[in-house]
């Protein structure tokens, strides 16, 4: 168990918003990766007392995968596929308050604008922290949160409770979901107070077109330059090979590349 050594804080109320994800290759529905990490973080913070909230259809089988992570219940705010989730979530959180609301950065299907946590935070008037990797401490109504930066870097932020946070892929991996608990877990279904997202009805959803790779456009001023650009050996066709020389020279060649790439400062 990745987090078995952390004592969950029972009096912290954590609510995790979960969505239905999809597998990038097969397109089949599944638990969404970042949402599952959020659930994992919720489990670490509040154990099985942390809540799961989903706006959508309880008949979606992928939702059971969240229950399979060992949580007894998932609150489903029953709504149609085109419903706007934010009002429903805001109402629900007003009725059943939470200290921390976690969710993924972006959904895995649909528009995936990643706006839900922002709109929710705006609506609730809570601060929002994007892309967190961990919540380190909660002390005196303040949480110290580790934010994930690109390339494995981290930043520590302090924020007062309650707050909304989106969970980055850098957060600890979600535990495996198991068939037994997923079968036993139950849904607390309530009818959501939502409005249809009419604006999106006007949009067109198409299968993703492959984006063209940007070509290295050579803006040559002279014929010679154009000629050179057209005939130059393309990059990446085999690299430089150093066979002779002392170890020192070879190491220096490598070091020069490392410095040029900026990985060694």
């Amino acid at each position: 168990m990745p987090n078995s050594n952390v004592n969950p804080e029972r009096n912290i109320r954590v609510a995790t918003l979960v969505s239905v994800g999809q597998h990038p290759k097969s397109g089949r529905t599944r638990r969404a990766g970042q949402d599952a990490r959020a659930v994992e973080l919720g489990l670490k913070m509040a154990g099985t007392a942390s809540r799961l909230i989903h706006v959508g259809d309880m008949a979606e089988p992928a939702l059971r995968q969240y229950l399979g992570m060992g949580l007894p219940q998932l609150s489903v705010l029953q709504a149609g596929p085109d419903a706007d989730a934010v009002p429903a979530l805001a109402t629900h959180l007003d009725e059943q308050p939470a200290d921390i609301v976690l969710t993924g950065v972006r959904a895995e299907s649909g528009e995936a604008s990643g706006m839900v946590p922002y709109l929710l935070a705006e609506r609730l008037g809570w601060p929002l922290i994007p892309r967190i990797a961990d919540i380190q401490t909660i002390d005196n109504g303040m949480a110290e949160v580790l934010q994930a930066l690109p390339r494995g870097q981290r930043r520590l932020l302090r924020v007062p409770l309650p707050f909304v946070a989106t969970v980055d892929n850098a957060a600890p991996e979600a535990r495996q979901y198991a068939f037994g608990p997923s079968r036993r877990g139950n849904f607390a279904v309530s009818l959501a107070n939502t409005t249809a997202d009419d604006e999106r009805q006007q949009w067109q959803e198409l299968p993703a077109k492959p984006r063209p790779k940007r070509l290295n456009v050579v803006k040559a001023k002279s014929a010679a330059d154009r000629f050179k650009a057209a005939t130059a050996k393309p990059q990446g066709q085999g690299g430089k090979v150093i066979r002779d020389g002392t170890d020192r020279e070879k190491a220096e060649a490598i070091m020069a590349l490392l410095v040029a790439e900026g990985v060694v400062r």
Partner: peptide, 29 residues
């Protein structure tokens, strides 16, 4: 304002946004 996210083809009228998991494109004003 409702933003167009992951927009990769934008002109004055239409925007094409990449959807979730990079599997769909959303064509929208």
């Amino acid at each position: 304002e409702r933003p167009a996210v992951q927009a990769w083809q934008v002109d004055a009228e239409q925007t094409v946004c990449r959807g979730g998991s990079h599997r769909t494109d959303w064509q929208r004003p």
